[in-house]
């Protein structure tokens, strides 16, 4: 039973971690809580349904499902990255020198806009993921998990590893330098604008994958899922130490575990409260998170 919950928690946590990465990368560079990041994840879930629908109507899904799924993921990632890129250019870039709360309010505006845009174009009711897959059960060390759960856990792990490796590349190093000191980074010849755009593109791409994974896992999506998932992923990022990429991974997985164990052993009605309580406790006890450092403000 506990082991079973751990698997469920790990599945959920992997998804949170993937979304949390986007929060943490943007925060690391812009010190902005990109409130609309959860909506990118929601858009990803919808785009997954839309593209898989298109490939189904083209007969591709029936002919070769893995290929159809792969293309769906690819298209979704491309579009979400475009949304992330555009979001930054339109709503945040003009506010880069504005007082700090302005971009946060702008982000809230983007979030509301995207939610309502999807509600108006796709309807307020739940949408069903058109294709069920990965439902074969696997028995693994006396736990029972579906192939899809295993795939989600593995994909999350792969994406995290990928991002970790990316950090070692030239672009990744430039990104970390920019996060540490934008002025210095610009002085040594890093194009800060490009780096910021890349951050949004990568973060949105990751969120897109998370969106498809969740849409397949639960089978239904709704225009409002981005808000809650966004808050939880943000909690995960803060839990691990915002700005820290390993922190986001750790925080996501921890939060997933807390939630599924809380839902199983305390009360499932209050499932969504646990994230907030964890967030409040963490911020009040250790605002810098588990892996975050501490720095004193210069006067």
């Amino acid at each position: 039973m506990l082991l079973q919950q751990l698997i469920n928690g790990l599945t959920l946590g992997g998804v949170y971690a993937i979304i949390a990465l986007g929060y943490t990368m943007v925060y690391g560079i812009l010190e902005l809580i990109n409130f609309a990041h959860g909506e990118i994840y929601m858009l990803g879930a919808y785009l997954g349904i839309i593209f898989l629908g298109i490939f189904t109507s083209l007969g591709l899904t029936a002919a070769n499902f893995p290929l159809a799924l792969l293309l769906t993921v690819l298209m979704t990632v491309l579009f979400c990255s475009a949304y992330g890129f555009t979001m930054e250019k339109v709503a945040y870039k003009p506010l880069r020198n504005a007082p700090r709360l302005s971009p946060l309010i702008s982000a809230i505006g983007v979030s509301i806009f995207l939610q309502n845009y999807v509600m108006l174009t796709q309807g307020a009711t739940d949408k069903v993921f058109p294709y069920r897959y990965g439902e074969t059960h696997i028995r693994f060390l006396s736990v029972d998990l579906t192939a899809l759960q295993a795939a989600i856990i593995i994909t999350s792990a792969l994406l995290m590893t990928g991002l970790h490796l990316f950090q070692k590349t030239r672009m990744g190093k430039a990104m970390r330098a920019t996060a540490q000191d934008k002025t210095m980074a610009a002085l040594v010849g890093i194009n800060v604008d490009t780096i910021i755009s890349m951050t949004f593109i990568i973060g949105a791409g990751l969120a897109a994958v998370a969106g498809i994974m969740v849409a397949s896992y639960y089978g239904i999506v709704n225009y409002s899922i981005g808000y809650m998932a966004g808050i939880k992923a943000f909690t995960a990022a803060v839990l691990g130490g915002i700005g820290s990429i390993p922190g986001a991974m750790l925080g996501g997985i921890l939060l997933g575990l807390i939630e599924s164990i809380g839902a199983a052993y305390i009360s499932s009605e209050y499932k969504d409260v646990y994230a907030f309580i964890v967030l409040l406790i963490i911020l009040l006890i250790r605002p810098s998170g588990i892996l975050g450092g501490y720095s004193e403000e210069k006067v």
Binding site: P99, S102, P103, S106, G109, I112, F113, L120
Partner: peptide, 26 residues
Amino acid sequence: MLLLGAGLVLLMIFRPQGILGGRKGV
């Protein structure tokens, strides 16, 4: 709500001090 969302973004960019001209921003 769609307009409210877009409005918030536009307000922050073009007139952060609001219509009655409060402070220059948040």
